[in-house]
Design a protein around this nucleic acid. Structure first.
Lengths: 201, 201, 201, 201
DNA sequence: AATGAATGAGCGTTCATTCAT
DNA sequence: AATGAATGAACGCTCATTCAT
């Protein structure tokens, strides 16, 4: 009734949404994207199935929102990193470590790849996803530009480097799917080394 | 006794199996792995649903066989490449081009990633997949070893390089999912360049 | 919190379960156990197919529950009968009449026999069924013991008599499958007479 | 061409039919009636699936023929028994032993019960089965008549006794389904005892 | 807002039967 | 007569979504 309540309602709504998204990510991480049913998500979120549909119109939308949240979060991370003080190599190392450390990055990556493949995804949705993906490349490119200026990173188009770097990271992260043993350990230093100018290594 | 030609039957069987696997790959490529139904595969293969089950005991098995075929085929390719005459850089370039050119490599990659994630995949199956994956690294490592000897590729553990290279390629290939436009073109030369020793570039 | 009445829900659940079991029995009675499909049961119960699976995890489980309900019901009947006042012969007559009168006893019998034969039935399930079967013999054996004491029933091991009596009843009941005309009427008195001591008949 | 060949063909046909029926009985005994598929029967009979349809027009017909064969065989057995020298009690004992000994009598019994229940069975077919069943009671009734005359079997309508006796045996036989342990051993003497006149026991 | 029972289209799979050889 | 590949209707079951409360 009062603006107070309206505001509190809105906050409640935000909290519920986050709760659902967290549950969705958790379930996806444990059961795999294909086997994550909304009943699982509801159970994980400790919410009723029906109530989920008060916050999302479809399962699709949940995954879509989850992906968006991930992309936005990642975007913030890189943007902050780019704006920080420090050398480009330090920043790249930090970023690589973040990719390889985070337990659930592969979930986001799978989600991204899946959403690209799914014919269910609408063209607008695709556009949005791709747009955010491209936007997130910019601060990373800035880091590469800084590194090139500093002479510590390989020469070349900074945006191109950013794109290759992200692809590289995604490829690596997908090797970390739980239950898999890879013959070689994945280290942030190693990844970054490929992008460094050898003269200064 | 038998009014049938046994040899012909066997050939027919092989052909049908390939037919089904091709159809499965095609459907997967168009609809995505999660949405590829048996009926789609049957329709694409111009075979009845029931008949598919003369050749495969389950949908799972089809994907498993498809992945295996891809891994074996790729294994042959790298092995031949490693045994060829030529410099390591040339070989790496050839390989990169093969990855980026082949329309359906991303299908295999998705399949690989998905099979790793699916809890349906039996532990033995997983072991087999991981085993083939690891085995396929060996000839690639040999190429890296050659390159290091030749002084054209970066120093380091050849197997480690091989692992990173494959992850890199997979990450790139996943950007090529149809319907997606990436802001940067993917070029084999660029990929290889990251693994080259800068002194000789 | 909950906008639902928990107690009512629970009652509703019980009612639905009975509704489904009744439908299953009815369908089985009309179409035979092998041809009783989930869709038939759903139609008979005026419930959707999917909803059935809110109450039972499988078709198997429905039949299992139906059999159990029958066994438990029969067990109560014999136990009460054994505890009643009256002569053993009177009790046996009552029991025989119950067997021969009840329209659906043969359904239970078929179910029992089928469950024994089905390789789908798990060993634990089998054990439970056999256990209930054996347990239900005890009160019947008590009746035979009483009769022997009273000198109206044949001498011998009461449990053995009970076992033979039940087998006999089952055999008779299976002649009453609908659509069959047997050349001889089945009468409770006749059955009991075989177990009576002739001196007192 | 020659009558010789025609005759041999006919014999061959008979042999094949028996081969198939034997296989059907065997499969039914091992897998249960519901799970006996014609592929199983074909495999057991070492014959191709398609070829089975040269001898039977449907799976139904196989079971029907199997049941008929069993009924006819049983009919011969009782008829011979009735015609034999010996007392009625001896004959009844022999018959009871035959019922309880034969490993596969329960298969026939299940088949009989199932055919009665199946709505697939045509009315004519049912009539035939019931007719044979009734016909087979006659020689058994003759044995009872003899026993009554001899004063060793209970008084009463011989046909009625026959009917009850067969029902009893069927009930007992169904307890012998493999994989089941019953709390009481089944003995031919015990069964017969219920039909004996106590004065002479 | 919240619940979870109810729905039904759709899935993977089976299997009696047919057909080309 | 003999083969077994091929067919497709039908089954049991799942699950995203809706609805009555």
């Amino acid at each position: 009734m009062s603006p107070r309540n309206a505001e509190r309602d809105l906050q409640m709504r935000e909290r519920r949404i986050d709760q659902i998204l967290d549950a969705a990510r958790e379930v996806m991480a444990v059961k795999g994207i294909g086997s994550a049913g909304i009943n699982d998500i509801a159970a994980e979120a400790k919410i009723s199935i029906g109530n989920i549909y008060h916050y999302f119109t479809s399962k699709e939308e949940i995954f879509s929102a989850l992906l968006k949240r991930g992309q936005v979060g990642y975007g913030k991370l890189v943007a902050e990193l780019a704006a920080e003080n420090g050398t480009a190599v330090e920043k790249l190392l930090k970023l690589s470590k973040a990719w390889l450390a985070a337990d659930n990055v592969w979930t986001q990556t799978i989600l991204l790849v899946s959403s690209r493949m799914s014919e269910l995804t609408s063209p607008e949705e695709r556009e949005a996803i791709t747009g955010r993906f491209a936007a997130n490349l910019t601060p990373l490119a800035a880091i590469f530009e800084q590194g090139i200026r500093e002479g510590t990173l390989r020469d070349g188009d900074p945006l191109e480097h950013a794109m290759y770097f992200v692809s590289f990271m995604q490829g690596l992260v997908l090797q970390q799917v739980p239950g898999i043993r890879v013959p070689v350990a994945l280290r942030a230093e190693r990844v970054v080394s490929y992008f460094r100018s050898e003269k200064t290594e």
